[in-house]
Amino acid sequence: MEACPACGAALHTPLACAACGALLDAPAELSPWKLLGLESGWQVEPAELQKRLVRCSRLMHPDFFAAAPQAARELAGRNSARLNEAYALLLDPARRAEWILTHAGGPSAQAERSMPQAFLMQVLEWNETLEASRGEPAGRRQQTLDELHGELEPQRAALLSRLANLLTPLPGPGSPQLLAARKELNALAYLDRALAQVQDLRLAH
């Protein structure tokens, strides 16, 4: 654990010191885990993440620096933004996986566009259902969308657990796990988009 440059106390986040209240201008390249004071790794407990967000926010939220000099106000804003960004990234499995893949030198989404073969067949089917639902009468459409949602959700859960296996422990550079993870991630991107579309259509009713 790093020490606070102002008072020497151990830091729980590189962005601010809980002991002396100093705001710290941390290097740009720190990982989101580090910013929130968490161990790096695929597994992130949402409840723990939330606890960290709140604990760190209490040290650096701009509301607590409203009467401070401008430099401190700005740093509080910048650090809070970094903290919130790290939180949002870790909370979203797709973004978390993307970060891991990119930083381990894995293939980018542009370089590797394929999905697992079995998944691709299902995608075609789902797309058809989604398209057809647009022409259905409201009541029927709602049912179709509910069913589709009921199908997609467990798919997503299964995919996330495959992704967890591939990314635990974190793969090193050049690991074959990275390519497999990218394919799963492509599938996850599709699923998340499809789920968002289903939700939009349900709301539009």
Partner: peptide
């Protein structure tokens, strides 16, 4: 690493 000290009192 720079830092800003604050008078929290």
């Amino acid at each position: 690493m720079g830092y800003i000290e604050l008078n929290v009192l």
